Amino acid sequence: MDEQLCYAYAVVGSSAPPDLAGVRGVAGAPVTLVDSGAVAAAISAVPWEGFSEAALKVGLEDLEWLEATARAHHSVIETLAAHTTVLPLRLATVYLDEARVRQMLREREADFAALLDRLTDHVEWGVKVYAEVPPSSPSAPTAAPPPSEPAGADAGRAYLRRRRYQRQAREDAWRVAEEAVRRTEQQARGLAVERTRHRPQQGGLARVPGENVANDAYLVPRRLSEEFRTRMLHAADGLPGVRVDVTGPWAPYSFTASVAPGAAEGAGQR
């Protein structure tokens, strides 16, 4: 089947459109703009067999497909963000044709335009706090043995003593982590204009040592970016077992969800 669909990456203002010559997106397709009034959408043509509603359900469960698509999707958005204010759309936002894209832009033009105006000259920074929290399992090794445990102690008493020690160590670690989170929030005051709290990453999603106890996104004026980054990198100074990771600057992914259409408005839309 040769039929093609429209994959939409982001919304930008139409008054000063970015140059997309040579920009390639999902499936290596060239990226173009479709405009309607004050706003435009960055799109590319994708094949029906790979991006129909049924195909997307399969693709979103395929880690290799998902990684490649996400990489291409975000690459287009970051290319746009280097030249203009951008409203990122959700991954795998697909429409039947350009007419449907224009219809979406017409229906949401006022919201898009207002948000573009509010986000002008602002960027997103990610701030994650990680803590070395001891395991809660009674059989897990502790960082150090309970200092008061005598040799040959009764097994039951030793077990209870180890449990108390582990519980105290976890409580201490969480107190330090909470202080680190409080410091990041305090350091953001006067710099960030908005914050979004994401669910802490767990298991394989974290991909780094430590337990993720805070996963926040901050909207920061571009001119204050370096000060914000410096403050966050030093927010946990003097706190043992805690690390603050700072990423960015990014396009404002976390601050466009209220108006951004999602994948449900894709090939299944009529």
Rank of each mutant, 00 (worst) to 15 (best):
D62M: 02
D62K: 01
L63I: 13
L63Q: 10
E64G: 13
W65V: 13
L66R: 08
L66D: 05
A68G: 06
T69Y: 01
A70K: 06
R71L: 15
R71V: 11
A72T: 04
H73T: 02
H74Y: 13
V76A: 02
V76P: 01
E78K: 12
T79N: 06
A81N: 06
A82Q: 13
A82D: 13
T84A: 12
T84S: 09
T85E: 05
V86D: 07
P88E: 04
P88S: 01
L89V: 04
R90M: 14
T93D: 08
Y95K: 11
L96I: 04
D97E: 08
E98A: 13
A99C: 05
R100K: 15
R100Y: 07
V101F: 05
V101H: 02
L105E: 01
L105F: 03
R106K: 13
R108K: 11
R108C: 03
E109M: 05
A110W: 06
A113T: 14
A113H: 09
A114P: 07
L116I: 08
R118P: 03
L119V: 08
L119R: 01
T120Y: 08
T120N: 13
D121A: 15
D121Q: 12
V123W: 04
W125D: 00
W125L: 07
G126A: 07
G126F: 00
V127M: 05
V127N: 00
K128A: 01
Y130A: 02
Y130G: 00
A131H: 02
A131F: 05
E132K: 11
E132W: 07
E132Y: 09
E132C: 10
V133C: 07
V133T: 08
P134D: 09
P134F: 06
P135K: 00
S136H: 11
P138D: 10
A140F: 10
A140G: 10
P141D: 03
A143M: 11
A143E: 13
A144R: 13
P146A: 12
P147H: 02
S148Y: 09
E149W: 11
E149I: 08
P150T: 06
P150R: 02
A151R: 12
A151W: 09
A151N: 09
A153R: 08
D154L: 13
R157W: 14
R157D: 12
A158V: 10
Y159A: 14
R163L: 14
R164I: 07
Y165A: 15
Y165F: 14
Q166V: 10
Q166S: 04
R167E: 15
R170A: 05
R170M: 11
D172I: 12
D172W: 08
A173C: 08
A173P: 01
A173W: 04
W174M: 15
E179G: 04
A180M: 07
V181K: 10
V181G: 04
R182G: 13
R183G: 09
E185T: 10
Q187Y: 12
G190N: 06
V193P: 03
E194M: 14
T196C: 13
R197S: 15
H198L: 10
R199N: 09
P200H: 03
P200W: 06
P200Q: 06
Q201D: 04
Q201P: 01
Q202D: 06
